[in-house]
Amino acid sequence: MIALLQRVSEAEVSVAGEVTGKIARGTLVLLGVEKGDDEAKAARLCERVLNYRMFNDGDGKMNLNLRQVEGELLVVSQFTLVADTQKGNRPGFSRGGDPQMSKALYEHFIACARHAGVSCQSGRFGADMQVSLVNDGPVTFQLSI
């Protein structure tokens, strides 16, 4: 399971012109599910995301996590994160989880964040989505489990 984190001052995702998720200061998570992933991995990755220190403290150092800054979370499914790009000019997707399992793990990740008390918005799994954001920094990290 792979999460691409972007520290944002604002972000939103829409499907067919309808906004499905919108946040102010916080973290945009692009989430990719691989074969072999399970609920335990999704829960561990969610905890890492919530505790990852990517926000500045009073001294300008990245010492604060999403919870400490009372930030919001926007989670968007993105199967292209698990693409094999090692050879050729076309990505391969054989490492990706099957759609049914991937959707369940995506929803489990979101449920874990909400259960932890974090304000969490989301896109729509499998939809053609438009994501807009203001990357604060820019700050972007990739986490995997």
Rank of each mutant, 00 (worst) to 15 (best):
45 L>Y: 04
108 H>M: 06
121 Q>L: 02
10 E>Y: 07
87 K>L: 04
108 H>I: 03
20 T>C: 06
102 S>T: 10
8 V>L: 09
41 K>T: 06
17 G>Y: 14
41 K>S: 12
37 D>M: 07
5 L>C: 08
120 C>N: 03
30 L>C: 06
118 V>R: 00
100 Q>C: 03
50 L>K: 01
30 L>H: 02
12 E>A: 09
89 N>I: 07
76 V>L: 08
27 T>Q: 07
50 L>H: 02
34 E>K: 09
48 R>D: 02
131 V>H: 04
114 R>W: 10
38 D>E: 08
95 R>E: 10
60 G>M: 02
47 E>S: 11
106 Y>K: 02
95 R>V: 05
36 G>A: 06
34 E>C: 09
48 R>A: 11
45 L>F: 08
31 L>G: 05
9 S>E: 13
16 A>C: 14
128 D>N: 15
48 R>P: 00
56 N>Y: 11
116 A>N: 03
123 G>T: 06
13 V>R: 11
68 Q>M: 04
59 D>L: 15
96 G>E: 05
16 A>I: 09
110 I>C: 09
120 C>F: 06
113 A>T: 13
9 S>Q: 12
128 D>G: 11
39 E>W: 00
105 L>M: 07
109 F>K: 09
45 L>R: 06
100 Q>Y: 03
9 S>T: 14
5 L>E: 08
77 S>M: 11
84 D>I: 09
52 Y>A: 01
72 E>V: 10
69 V>M: 15
27 T>A: 08
27 T>N: 07
44 R>S: 12
7 R>M: 12
85 T>E: 02
105 L>Y: 00
118 V>N: 02
82 V>S: 02
43 A>K: 10
105 L>C: 07
85 T>Y: 01
